[in-house]
Simulated assay, not measured.
Amino acid sequence: MILVTGASGTVGRHVVQLLQQGGYRARAMTRGRPGHALPPDVDVVRADFDDPDSLRRAVIGVRTVFLLTAPATPTPDHDLALLATARSAEVTSVVKLSAIGTGERFGAATVGAWHQAAEHAVRTSGLAWTVLRPSSFAANCLHWASLIRAGQSVPNLTGDGQQGVIDPRDIAAVAVAALTDSAHAGKTYTLTGPELLRLPDQATQLAQVIGRPVVTADLSPAVARQQLLASGMPSAAVEATVIGSAWARAGHNAIVTDDVERVLGRPPATFRSWAQRHREAFTGAR
């Protein structure tokens, strides 16, 4: 049995689907009603990282865990709680979804500091482990959909910083490989798409796919901080977002690796192919 946390989210739902398609037993952990449809025969367990009893129920009979946490306020606590429960239940291996650049120093800040602490906990857990560090998700652009349909500009927090934008389905496919093949134990994979793109490049490609303009508006880190705080985002989450965006803006995420191809035996998908698959999300047309 493989436990998938974050099972109804951007990456987790694809992990569940691929495991099911491959004939593996998957248990989907969700905190509430799944935000996306899960396969009808998947074992779904309701659990919360802040509820130890629910975590104990979630790991019963589990051999391997896909560890994806997305707390509203950045903290490694959820990772630590699941790892402690997994060890007590004799889980044997874990695949941790982290983020590119984790642990890098940027001025006085550390990029992905909470992921860094969680990665350390994974590597010292006594379980067989694999760490995945994906670059910027192509699916982040789905947040633009309502703005584009309303003819408004898309905020650009990363300026002309290039990123190896990756399709979440490729992240999920690598995760499934790591969950089901011990050859990936002890590896840290940096997962990127096949090309470097600025956010305006993504906007241009998306505009070509959907047949309508996609205009970007550059936001400095200071302005981005003000707007995010005004939106009600927790201050710690705002700081993590601003640090990561400024790090990418400064060119530190201009990285393309061959890790996806080495694991899957095929090149990663392009941003354009992702946009074509999600065209109706931006146009409302089927």
Rank of each mutant, 00 (worst) to 15 (best):
V15N: 02
L68D: 06
S8D: 08
L132N: 00
V260T: 00
H184Y: 03
G12D: 05
G35V: 07
P168G: 04
S136C: 06
A28N: 07
K96S: 03
V95W: 06
L38F: 11
S54A: 11
G6I: 08
A89Y: 10
R57L: 14
T283S: 08
T190Q: 00
F66K: 02
R266H: 01
R13G: 03
H278P: 03
Q276K: 13
L18C: 04
A117F: 04
A145F: 04
L179H: 05
L68R: 05
L179T: 12
L80E: 09
D79W: 03
T180K: 03
G232V: 11
V176H: 01
S8E: 09
G112P: 01
A281M: 14
D170F: 00
A237W: 05
I2T: 15
A248N: 12
P213Q: 09
R27Y: 08
T75M: 07
V45W: 07
L3E: 05
G12K: 02
A128S: 14
V122N: 00
G265H: 09
N253K: 15
G9A: 08
H120L: 14
E195G: 07
E119V: 05
D79Q: 01
A177M: 09
A58G: 06
V174P: 01
W274I: 12
C141S: 14
A185E: 12
R277E: 11
D160I: 06
L206N: 04
T75S: 15
A236G: 09
Q227F: 09
